[in-house]
Design a protein around this nucleic acid. Structure first.
Lengths: 219, 219
DNA sequence: TTAAATAATATTGTCGACAATCTGGGGTAT
DNA sequence: ATACCCCAGATTGTCGACAATATTATTTAA
């Protein structure tokens, strides 16, 4: 039952963290000879790892030209929010129908943590507790396909975007209350309300970003 | 502006059609030496093509063991329908807001074709006209990310499933009316109603499949 | 001086060969 | 007879080298 891991597996993870930590900055080129030297692997293994990065949309590739770390335009970001609204709304709906008692306790634990972070004036979003919350609900939907789509693709793009734009939301308190509403509906097994609340939550987050974008554009 | 195409590009397409046409049957193993001989390419190029098939979920891969064409369990199929309901509902909503006059004409053209196929007693689904209809709406949402997700990943799985289970729906007439309702809402720019109708349409399709599954299980 | 053409360089695409790992069959011991 | 172990064959993983293409620098002509 041991996890078999190949060189491209390891490279894939290493390159992802390199991207998130900014060592491979947004928009920069992934030079195959250079990276092969740095990570001490052959170009073949490297190319497969880059292929996987492309599959989850963290890099874009052009034939005979090379791969670059994606740079999220504001436009693309809004597109992603619309997809998130649809998918996570469905996740909340399914979670209300399929969640287990233990998963409910996990959600409550995360809510407590969120409340404490606000109390202590920590930056909730910076610590990625927000991702944990959404991750848990998607998992509780017990829909493997939905989970794969959101957690292996979308959330990583969201994460990259937070680093890229240095997102620091003043929405921590309001987001907390929205989270409470969502968990409440799920606990009551009210699928319709759970989806509605989740969509409202993500819509609010999108509108917040749109406001920030409008400000930074109007110089 | 010429389309540059590499060997893995071509292989990717060839293998996809081979899967859809059943020459690579569901659940069968993709032998690298064998396929490399048949298609007269090196194993390296082949491996990249297989990697892309894995990315759009048409094959699954295990380290040191190999790749197999996915076999869609009934469970997985239902999961996909839930994701489709969420994503296409959003697509219809966005399309109602962003569709152009020309795209509206295209939708009406497809509706006419659908009506004629029913008249002439053709099998609408078999000819993939249904895919064209949904494809056009997703495109009209003018959300590139959504388009990519649905048309490059999900629709191919749906297509594979139709071949695998030999889907021949008796829903052609009812589906036609549902399609009309959707187009109607979009033309009136009623986003809320467009989403509602699209979700109802896909939900009905899912429930139809669930019924068929229940029948075939109860031997 | 600028712009186009061209040559030099570097990068990506492709391939065949070797190493590591899995699969299946045969043999042995209980 | 069955279960376990071990070995042979085949398959996948990995690598370095060569070919094709793009990029950059240089030269030349207007």
């Amino acid at each position: 039952m041991a996890e078999v891991t190949s060189i491209p597996d390891r490279l894939f993870e290493d390159l992802k963290t390199a991207i998130f930590e900014g060592r491979l900055s947004v928009g920069s080129k992934l030079s195959e000879p250079e990276l092969a030297r740095d990570y001490e692997v052959s170009r073949g293994a490297l190319r497969e790892a880059i292929g996987r990065l492309e599959a989850c949309r963290l890099v874009t590739r052009k034939t005979n030209v090379g791969a670059r770390v994606v740079s999220l335009s504001h436009e693309k970001l809004i597109e992603i929010f619309h997809v998130r609204e649809a998918l996570e709304g469905m996740a909340a709906r399914l979670a209300a129908e399929a969640i287990t008692e233990e998963e409910i306790r996990e959600l409550e634990r995360l809510l407590d943590k969120h409340a404490n972070d606000i109390e202590d004036n920590h930056d909730y979003f910076q610590k990625e507790g927000d991702v944990d919350f959404h991750y848990t609900i998607v998992k509780a939907s017990h829909n493997g396909f939905l989970f794969d789509l959101l957690c292996n693709d979308l959330y990583q793009l969201v994460r990259l975007y937070r680093y890229q734009f240095g997102m620091r939301s003043k929405r921590a308190v309001r987001a907390y209350h929205e989270h409470c509403n969502i968990v409440d509906a799920i606990k009551r097994r009210d699928a319709e309300m759970a989806e509605h609340m989740m969509r409202a939550h993500i819509r609010a987050s999108r509108e917040n970003v749109e406001r920030q974008m409008a400000e930074s554009t109007a110089a």
